[in-house]
């Protein structure tokens, strides 16, 4: 897969991030390195190998449907960057 400036801008936009020109270059370099590294996989013969969806080999980890502890409102308030009338306040999107 090729990473260029356009891809970086596209991905940044999807994540609602605004990157400066230098940051874009930096990201391009880093993501390229990651993808190059992952390319090692394509050297393997994976004919007939099922895609892995989880690496630990666990399955069916569930919990009982019983109500446990939630945050106190005051704790939630502390986490919120901005808080008003019991709600998180965020800039409007769309």
């Amino acid at each position: 897969m090729k990473i260029d400036k356009k891809t970086i801008q596209w991905v940044a936009d999807l994540a609602n991030l605004s990157l400066g020109e230098e940051e874009e270059l930096e990201m391009e370099k880093q993501l390229l390195a990651i993808l190059d590294y992952m390319d090692i996989l394509s050297e393997l013969d994976l004919e007939g190998v099922e895609p892995t969806s989880h690496t630990l080999g666990y399955k069916n980890v569930t919990r009982e449907d019983r109500v446990g502890e939630s945050f106190e409102i005051n704790e939630v308030k502390k986490i919120a960057p901005k808080w008003e009338r019991g709600h998180f306040v965020v800039p409007r999107v769309v």
């Binding site: 109500v67 446990g68 939630s70 945050f71 409102i73 939630v76 019991g86 709600h87 998180f88």
Partner: peptide, 15 residues
């Protein structure tokens, strides 16, 4: 394990 009950105080079922 937060509750799903409806109409409670906003953000009170969070973790």
């Amino acid at each position: 394990s937060c509750s799903t009950s409806f109409g409670d105080k906003p953000n009170s079922h969070t973790c």
